[in-house]
Every structure is written in C-alpha cells, then in structure tokens.
C-alpha cells in the first residue's frame, strides 16, 4: 500500500510535469505579449537605450534578413508564381491567376516563410544573446543598475521583429510576383503587361485580405520575438546552445504555424 502511495505521486508528477511546463510557457507568452502591448504604448518605456536597442535589432533583423528573403522570394517566384501562370494559362483559366496567387502566396505562404526566415536568421541570435546573458549573470547586473531587462531586452526585440515581419513580408511578395512575371514572360506564357498582372493580383484581394496579410506578418514577427526572448531568458542552469536552440526553434515554428492557421480560420 505504501509503495503504491509512493509510486502514484511520482507517476502523476512525471505525467503532469511536461503539461505544466507547456502551460506555463503559454501563460508566460500571453502575459509578456500583453506586457509588450502595454509598455509599447508608454512613452516612458522608450528611453534612449531602449530606442537604441530597437534600432540595432531592426537593422540586424530587417537588413540582415533582406538577402535571404530576396533569394527565397525569387525561388518561390520561379517555382510557384510562374508555374501558376503557366498551368492556369494552359488550362485556359488566366482569369483566376490573381485569386490563386492571393490565396496561396499572399495569405498563406509569404507570412509563414517570412516567419521561418526571421526565426532562423534573427530569432536564433536573440536566443543565444539572451541565454548567454542569463547564464553569465548580466541580467542581475542590469537589475542592479535599475535597468528593467523586460524593457531593455524584450520590448525592443518584439517590436523590432514585428516591424521586420511586416517589412520583409511586403518585400517577399513583391519580389516573388516580379520574378514569377519575368519568368512567365521569358517562357512566353504571360499575356498581360506587368501593371496588368499586378492589377489582377490587387483586384483579387478582398478587404479581409488587406487585413489578414499585414496582421499575420506583424503577429508572426512579434511571436517569433516573444518565443525567442522567452527561451533565451528562461535558460536554466546546465542549458547550452545545444539545448536552447532546438527548444527555441520548435517553439518558434509552432508559434508561426499556429498563428497563421488560426488567423486564416478567423478572418
């Protein structure tokens, strides 16, 4: 009886521990997300070091991610846009090219791919930077100097990632459409001018698409920032880049996919 009593809590603890850990992470995400929204609206939160950190992260994330986004978008333009133009033309359905591209490229593919590039290019850097600070005792030093680590490290990163997500998303779609149009023209399957093609895409966008596309980009960028900073700042004793990076990557990928799917269903 005693042995049963001893085993039961141990078994329950083993089952409950990962559930509690994941629930705690989601609650932490929600609370920090609300904290970022609240603090971002306060002028006092944006002091000089916070603004400088925002500019630094924005420069590194948007500037550093530009070439990766340009190459990825060009490949998507060649592989998806030109193929859509070609095969819809073959099927005599040129009229729905805009609708197909808006549904597949603008609403679904672009936000997810931008989220992945942002996660791999800048989210991983944030995890390493903040994980090293947590392990090295620099957070204690910041607090000791009266510098709130949330304001100095989390707020500017999440805000910069949200702006970067939007910026890179717009660039991604423009390059993908242009590359696809050029490839289609070279294959001789495009019957429209460039402006006619872009006009067809724009006309296929409904009011909800104008809301969903930027909303997804901003939300996905902010979520990548949140998952990365939380993973870095919650580094435990014994954690290393070998344990932190896979954890942060998994969390980031799940956040990007869930956000994209839920927003697509909601809007």
């Amino acid at each position: 009886m005693n042995s049963h009593a001893a085993i039961a809590p141990s078994l329950l603890a083993r089952i409950g521990a990962p559930v509690r850990r994941r629930a705690a992470f989601l609650l932490l995400m929600a609370s920090l997300g609300l904290g970022v929204l609240r603090e971002a609206a306060l002028g006092d939160a944006w002091r000089r070091p916070v603004r400088a950190e925002f500019r630094r992260v924005l420069r590194e994330a948007a500037g550093g991610g530009f070439s990766t986004i340009a190459v990825t978008a060009a490949l998507i333009g060649l592989g998806l846009v030109s193929q859509a133009i070609y095969w819809l033309g073959e099927a005599g359905q040129e009229g729905i090219v805009g609708t197909v591209l808006v549904t597949v490229l603008v609403r679904e593919l672009a936000p997810v791919l931008v989220g992945f590039v942002l996660l791999g290019r800048s989210g991983m850097v944030a995890i390493v930077e903040l994980g090293a600070m947590q392990a090295g005792g620099q957070l204690r030093a910041l607090q000791g100097m009266g510098l709130d680590p949330f304001r100095l490290l989390v707020l500017p990163r999440v805000a910069a990632f949200a702006v970067t997500g939007f910026t890179l998303g717009i660039i991604f779609v423009l390059i993908a459409l242009l590359t696809g149009f050029v490839a289609g023209s070279l294959l001789g399957v495009v019957q429209l001018s460039l402006f006619g093609f872009l006009d067809a895409v724009l006309r296929a966008m409904g009011a909800r698409d104008f809301l969903l596309f930027p909303g997804k980009l901003v939300m996905i960028g902010a979520l990548v920032g949140l998952t990365s900073t939380i993973t870095g700042l919650s580094a435990r004793r014994g954690d290393s880049t070998a344990t932190l990076l896979p954890r942060g990557f998994l969390r980031g990928v799940l956040a990007v996919l869930l956000c994209s799917a839920l927003l697509s269903l909601a809007v």
Binding site: M133, G136, Q138, A141, M145
Partner: peptide, 12 residues
C-alpha cells in the same frame, strides 16, 4: 547607485 559587479555585468 554606482556599481562594480564581480562578474563584470557587461552586455555582450
């Protein structure tokens, strides 16, 4: 308060 930290306290 001006502080010198044992472990440095430098943001890397």
């Amino acid at each position: 308060i001006g502080r010198v930290f044992h472990e440095g306290g430098w943001v890397p």
